[in-house]
């Protein structure tokens, strides 16, 4: 009874949120899961249970392996996006960390794309990534031509094999500044004494970064990867805006939308759940790890 009086008011204040999240996050996920094992393939009701057939069909029986293809696209996109954004973010942070005049100005510009929606930036990136090569080239290809770098011209997202790598460019543009800000905060969270101690030991700048500073940044890098990774797996707006829904650039999130268009709820639900599992595989261990690290501190 005393325990209740102690925690009661707090729980009371918390409970509306908990109830809402229980319903709208976990309840709806359960509902989607139930839908994904039914045979509701049209707008008409039908709720037969078909077990894991919808999942099996996605991986083994989808026309032209459309789902596997969308996963492959997602993989290429994610890898290029993560590597690109981490790399640019780190380089920018390093430049600023070394000290430049008007640092605030550079920081503001590097970060501003983050304020823009994918739908808006997609409008211009669709134009920049114009696939015409040679005569009549536009966008970045035209820029290459005027810089006499014609060999760099390419078909961007319409390239059948590596198109998704090009699709990651706008995402890198948008989020490198974010990674930069994270790293910058990380750099500046390192105690000055550590640097000074290293300097006293006569460590070169390279050694200072390699042995003292970078190891301190591991947690920052990890959280940056997690944030970018989960954004990448949900990627929808950008692709809808740059290429529209089509085979070449289809990822699972877009596939869900296309499937819903023909009211195939069961299949759409199955794809969504696969997507959720992909995210969970990465996020859940991370959350548990964070939780534990916090307790130990």
């Amino acid at each position: 009874m005393r325990r209740l009086r102690h925690w009661g008011p707090g729980l009371l204040l918390l409970s509306p949120s908990l109830i809402l999240l229980a319903i709208f996050v976990y309840g709806l996920i359960a509902w989607t899961t139930k839908m994904s094992v039914s045979d509701q393939h049209t707008a008409l009701k039908s709720n037969g249970f078909v077990g894991l057939d919808n999942y099996k069909n996605l991986f083994t029986n989808d026309i032209q392996d459309r789902f596997v293809h969308s996963l492959r696209n997602l993989l290429i996109f994610t890898v290029v996006f993560l590597v690109g954004a981490m790399l640019f973010g780190l380089i920018w942070a390093l430049i600023l960390e070394r000290g430049v005049r008007a640092e605030g100005f550079f920081r503001t510009i590097y970060l501003f794309p983050m304020a823009v929606s994918f739908v808006a930036s997609g409008v211009v990136w669709r134009w920049l990534m114009n696939p015409v090569v040679g005569d009549g080239a536009g966008g970045i290809n035209a820029l290459f031509a005027s810089l006499h770098l014609d060999f760099l011209q390419n078909k961007w997202w319409t390239n059948p094999t590596w198109g998704m790598a090009a699709m990651a460019m706008p995402a890198i543009w948008q989020l490198s500044g974010y990674v930069m800000a994270l790293f910058l905060a990380g750099f500046r969270g390192i105690p000055q004494e550590l640097r000074e101690a290293a300097a006293m030991d006569g460590a070169s700048t390279y050694r200072l970064y390699r042995n003292v500073i970078f190891p301190q940044l591991t947690p920052v890098a990890l959280s940056a990867l997690i944030i970018l990774g989960h954004m990448s797996m949900k990627m929808f707006d950008l692709i809808m805006s740059v290429s529209g829904p089509q085979w070449l650039t289809e990822v699972p999130a877009v596939y869900v939308w296309q499937t819903l268009l023909t009211s195939d709820y069961a299949k759409a639900a199955a794809i969504s759940i696969v997507l959720l599992l992909l995210v969970a595989v990465v996020i859940v261990p991370y959350l548990i790890y964070t939780n534990r690290a916090e307790k130990n501190s």
Partner: peptide, 30 residues
Amino acid sequence: SRWRFPGADVVFTLILFGMFIPYQAVMIPL
């Protein structure tokens, strides 16, 4: 941040997970 009721960590983690879910997984029933 103040009331460490039993299971607070689990509750907090469950809340946080809601931040990462792909919204497609709730959109159809929603």
